[in-house]
């Protein structure tokens, strides 16, 4: 479970819901479709996708920490639901712009532009085919605007990431009048969206790494070789400790970055967290898979549901090399004497 300064009840309820509805079998069967109707329905009923969006804008209320606790649980259970997209990303853009938040899933598209009054461009969009609205942040002269497009107005080619989560290829050639357009809220620009998106991936990865540590510990405490459980071997313990360290680093980073963004001062926190996540995914999945032996690379055992998601999410919302470069630039700006202030915040 995660802390994230979340409402304990939200964290407990979402955990129970996923325990009931999102077993490894469900995740496995969802992959062909990229969708579990019961799961979305249950999330939707409880209002989870819209947590952190104000009630007045059609959201469920609650804090960003509450939303992060939900995303963390989605990471732990490898749950195929577009909650980050619907609430923290698309919903946030819509609410800020005063546009309607749809009752069904929504998602975001990055890299589109306005050509006159038309919305154009190609984008890979998470869960596009399952969404009611696709929301984009576009530049209109010197201002940022939010475009809300009905999914029926675009052409969608199905695609999927390494984990079988829908990542559809979408062509936008949308005439004015076929989509809504409104000025984005103050401070909302492409970078703010990128940071939020990156944070959503960090938090889900924190959940997945936490679960990966746990199932690796569980497995190595059951599996016997040479007459004893393999968790008793120092060589295996090394992998358990490595996996746990990766989880611990990313979980701490996710929580610190979430709080910083909630306080309106993300600073370097999301960049740092994304860089740490990338390294932890490489080190953690390698250690967890090694500890599992051949069982870990079968589709019959759920480790792959976590590792494939971790490998997929690291490409989204900025690669580690981009964020690392940014951090280096921030260090340079701070100078040798100011560097430690970035560390302590």
């Amino acid at each position: 479970m995660s802390a994230f300064a979340a409402d304990e009840l939200v964290a407990e309820t979402v955990d129970r819901l996923l325990l009931d509805l999102c077993s490894p079998d469900v995740v496995e069967h969802a992959e062909a479709e990229g969708w579990v109707p019961d799961l979305w329905h249950a999330f939707s009923e409880s209002g989870f996708p819209w947590v952190s969006l104000p009630d007045t804008a059609g959201g469920s209320g609650g804090t960003l920490g509450d939303a992060a606790a939900i995303l963390h649980a989605i990471g732990r259970y490898a749950a195929p639901v577009p909650v980050a997209e619907t609430g923290m990303l698309a919903g946030w853009l819509l609410a800020g712009a005063g546009l309607a938040i749809p009752g069904g899933p929504a998602t975001v598209a990055v890299g589109l532009s306005l050509e006159g009054a038309r919305l154009v461009g190609d984008a890979t969009v998470a869960w596009a085919a399952r969404s009611e609205r696709i929301v984009a942040l576009v530049q209109d002269g010197a201002t940022w605007k939010v475009a809300s497009v009905p999914a029926s107005a675009v052409s969608i080619t199905r695609g999927a990431n390494l984990a079988g989560e829908p990542r559809d290829l979408v062509r936008f050639e949308v005439a004015s009048g076929a989509f809504d357009l409104a000025a984005a809220a103050d401070g909302v620009d492409a970078d703010a969206l990128l940071q939020r998106g990156a944070l959503s991936r960090v938090v889900m990865s924190a959940g997945a790494l936490r679960a990966m540590t746990q199932i690796t510990v569980d497995y190595t405490n059951e599996r016997k070789q040479f007459g004893k459980t393999i968790a008793g071997f120092q060589a295996v313990q090394q992998f358990l400790v490595n996996t746990a360290q990766c989880s611990v680093r990313v979980n701490m980073a996710a929580e610190r970055a979430t709080r910083a963004l909630a306080a309106g001062e993300p600073g370097i926190t999301i960049a740092a967290a994304k860089v740490l996540t990338d390294a932890a995914v490489a080190e953690g999945t390698r250690a967890a898979h090694q500890a599992h032996g051949a069982m870990g690379v079968t589709r019959e055992y759920p480790l792959h549901q976590l590792s494939r998601r971790l490998w997929a999410w690291r490409h989204e919302y900025g690669t580690a090399s981009m964020w690392r470069r940014r951090l280096g630039t921030a260090a340079h700006r701070a100078g040798a004497e100011g560097l430690f202030q970035l560390v302590t915040g």
């Binding site: 960049a271 280096g328 970035l342």
Partner: peptide, 15 residues
């Protein structure tokens, strides 16, 4: 920049 960035991220979380 890359060396500084990688190290900064780690100092930040170890703190």
């Amino acid at each position: 920049a890359d060396v500084l960035g990688e190290a900064l991220a780690n100092y930040w979380v170890l703190h």
